[in-house]
């Protein structure tokens, strides 16, 4: 009955890349991937590396505990008010893809209370190879897999591996122990992803996050300049 009328003051936050005052809102980066691949380790390392330069907050989507949020707290990578845990009702992919409302609430709350934020990292609950973030929730997404879960994972593909803006292949330090062939993984990833970037990491080594941090910084700089990311 009211459809089609123009409405006064309708402002649904989030959809727009700018804040009401015209400045760019925080860049939202999603991190997805299978259970235990190193998503939280990546978030923690990114926070440690980038927090002196940028104002950062994190949202975790634990499947049934608050472990990820608690890990970030325990490691003191961010102050507690910068970390929010979202519950996902046993369906982590629903909360990042089909019904993003709880995650959007969390992101917007962080943005409102910690204004001005530069970067929000949203970690998905560990899921399967088909889980991707909605473009309504994040601006860019990173998919994290590891060498120990089988070096055939890049070959298997799936939306996370083929379409994520960045693919991280983590735990390269374990490759000799599990017989994973990194060259094959690189070739398979290239075949699945074309020109989209792939970074191999070992987060247990010093500054193992460097290349990923540079990639995020590059996107952040572009985002703040108002360019299409």
């Amino acid at each position: 009955m009211h459809l089609g009328h123009s409405l006064p003051h309708q402002h649904i936050p989030s959809v727009s890349a700018t804040r009401p005052d015209g400045s760019r809102r925080a860049l939202r980066v999603g991190l997805g991937g299978p259970v235990g691949s190193g998503k939280t380790a990546t978030v923690a390392a990114l926070c440690r590396t980038l927090r002196d330069r940028w104002c950062i907050a994190a949202v975790t989507n634990d499947i049934y505990t608050r472990e990820d949020a608690e890990y970030l707290l325990r490691e003191a990578v961010l102050p507690p008010e910068r970390i929010t845990a979202v519950e996902t009702g046993a369906c982590p992919h629903t909360a990042i893809r089909d019904d993003i409302s709880a995650n959007l609430e969390a992101v917007e709350h962080l943005e409102e209370t910690l204004h001005p934020l530069d970067l929000v990292l949203v970690e998905s609950g560990g899921d399967n190879l088909t889980a991707t973030f909605s473009k309504g929730l994040v601006d860019v997404q990173i998919f994290v897999i590891d060498v120990a879960s089988g070096d055939d994972i890049p070959r298997k593909g799936g939306p996370g591996i083929t379409t994520a803006d960045l693919l991280i292949v983590n735990k390269t330090d374990l490759a000799p122990h599990v017989g994973a062939d990194l060259d094959t993984m690189a070739v398979d990833a290239k075949r699945q992803r074309g020109d989209l970037p792939v970074i191999f990491t070992s987060l247990t080594s010093d500054d193992g996050i460097r290349e990923v941090a540079d990639w995020v910084t590059g996107h952040l700089a572009q985002w703040r300049a108002g360019a299409v990311v």
Partner: peptide, 13 residues
């Protein structure tokens, strides 16, 4: 949030 996007109305605003 969902209602404002799907069934916009002054009352919801």
């Amino acid at each position: 949030r969902a209602a404002r996007a799907t069934f916009p109305s002054a009352e919801l605003e």
